[in-house]
Design a protein around this nucleic acid. Structure first.
Length: 110
DNA sequence: ATCATGACCATCC
DNA sequence: AGGATGGCCATGA
């Protein structure tokens, strides 16, 4: 791959602390490409095959919905992983999303 | 350059 | 509430 764009995405996703989640849009924005939110999600398709594997389960859409759960090995894996991180998932969406939301901007701080 | 494909987002109905 | 539409943009053929 070597695509710089994906690397940036992975870099941020890997920085997500345990028990926290973020949104595709937020990541895109921190990359300076707010409109490229789709690309973030697109990049996540390679998350499972990326070399340090990225915690894609900590990335949800702007509503805290587990949109990409079906892209995991098993659809149940995502919420299961989140549950282990102390993140409650109800009806495919993050409970207390605003509370567990992690802002990438705070870690980028360029 | 053009077309098709999205793990998105906002808006409209 | 839930479906449809358009926009946006990187990637690969």
């Amino acid at each position: 791959m070597n695509t710089n764009f994906y690397e940036q995405v992975y870099e941020i996703v890997r920085l997500i602390p345990k028990g926290r989640v973020t949104s595709y849009g937020a990541i895109a924005k921190s990359l300076g490409a707010a409109k490229s939110s789709r690309m973030v999600g697109y990049a996540m398709r390679f998350a499972g095959m990326a070399h340090p594997k990225v915690p894609a389960h900590r990335v949800v859409n702007s509503s805290g919905l587990l949109t990409g759960k079906f892209h995991f090995e098993t659809p149940e894996m995502m919420e299961d992983l989140l549950a282990k991180e102390n993140v409650k998932v109800k009806d495919d969406k993050i409970v207390n999303f605003k509370t567990v939301f992690w802002n990438p901007m705070e870690e980028i701080t360029e």
